[in-house]
Design a protein around this nucleic acid. Sequence first.
DNA 1: TTAGGGTTAG
Length: 591
Amino acid sequence: MVSFHGSQTTSSTATLTHSPIYHAIIQAGPRLKPLQQVHARITVTGSGRSRSLITKLLSFAYAATSPISYTRALFFSIPNPDTFLFHSLITLTSKFKFPQESLLYYRRMLLANISSSNYTFSAVIKSSADLMTFSIGKTIHCHVLICGYGLDTYVQAALVSFYAKSGHVGIARKVFDKMPDRTVVAWNSMISGYEQNGFGKEAIGLFHLMRDSGVKPDSATFVSLLSACAQVGASGLGCWVHEYIARNNFDLNVVLGTAMINMYSRCGNVIKAREVFYSIKEKNIVAWTAMISGYGMHGHGSHALELFSEMRVNGPQPNTVTFVAILSACAHAGLVNEGRRIFASMRQEYRLEPSVEHLVCMVDMLGRAGHLNEAYQFIKDMPKEPAPAVWTAMLGACKMHKNFDLGVEIAEHLLSFEPENPGHYVMLSNIYALAGRMDRVEKVRNIMIRNRLKKEVGYSTIDVDQKVYLFSMGDKSHAETNQIYQYLDELMGRCREAGYIPASESVMHEVEEEEREHALRYHSEKLAIAFGLLKTGPGVPIRIVKNLRMCEDCHAAIKHISVIANREINVRDRLRFHHFKDGSCSCRDYW
DNA sequence: TTAGGGTTAG
């Protein structure tokens, strides 16, 4: 590697662009080999005395593939790098997603006593966010304050994004609230921060605040907003975004389009999702995968398979995420042979190594379909100890097919290496309850109480007139609680007359029969449905989003409600969609 | 020249 000794002066821009070496760099472009050839020329001719040439060379090298070892060596060959070189390197490495390199140069810059600007600060904060290094980011925040950049718009927006990406939404909001002049990017950072941390409702709330404060949303705002709508099932607002985009002639680029596909799919409208998918001009693998996944969560396995085949002919190469989506679609539609074939093709045709997610899909697919032995053998054949998620899928299959012995064995195995996971205890308890072993159910419950392990709280949301309402089990916080409960009692009475029998084993703890029925009756989804039926006119479909899986009792009850109330009811639970109509569910009870 | 955006299992 060449060294650049002596006191180098930076050529003026005019001299630089007239240099034949400069033209050779431009011609080489972001290709490592040709750049290295130009570098050799620089070495031989001694033109390396020009720092600008080296900086230009570096900028192209970063745009090339796998440039790290080369560019790093190039950098370390330069004695006393100047401010300009450091700034270029930090912004380039951050831009081209080499966050570790970016922080390395920042450290060297500090050691060389060269001060940072708002450009370098925003770049290294972004790098800390990409690297998920909270302590480094916090330290840089201190540097920012010491150096007097605490009120710089760009730096602040980067900080908001950094804190949100590291899961500290509260701190992000504090930084955001302190900003004197909030740009659209700052709003977007905070909205996206909420959405990505699972605070969809807060993201939507902040969007309304943004509009009230007169800041015009842009395409990135809508991408995050659509994701938030998808999260909480805010179909009304999601449709409004679609109309707004059309009315204001926004370009439906692939990122915005994909967010829209996801919103429509997760809000229950797979037909609209499909329309958007076909209207995107330049569809990439993410868009194709989103659409396949949309079909999958609605149980449209054959549509997912058709699209997957179409993609193999007309579309981009599937990636590992695509395979998760298609395998999951096969699992939910009971398409076992197709799933087996696709799983085999991953390695054979696409040279993609299956990861935990793919193995989980396979166990889930085989298990759901009742091939418990094959699923178990599939796990046993794995070369190393399977991840807990694989066993969890197997446990789910045991519960589904009421295989008590195997279920207990697996639950105990899971608990031996994840003793703090309340989900496993709940599952074990459910399996005991199915086998009528209420003494064991009580025992599991006591262990949970002793170890202070809490079951995740279930809740359901419903969108009425562009407003999202949330219900938890036995919720009495709503203004119209009395009416809701009265109507629900009436509905359940009519369900009973129509032949519905409460599935009391869905209640975890051991209580008297009457009390168990009472606990079932006020599950969050039933309350949300009663509210929806009261608040919307005849024929309007009811759309519910539940954070956990629906219990068997609710599934059975909603089938009856769809007949009694003569209404289409769509429920998205943690795993998939259930479209209830005329007494049956689109999942054909396969869930 | 800076800051913000889409897809995946249980």
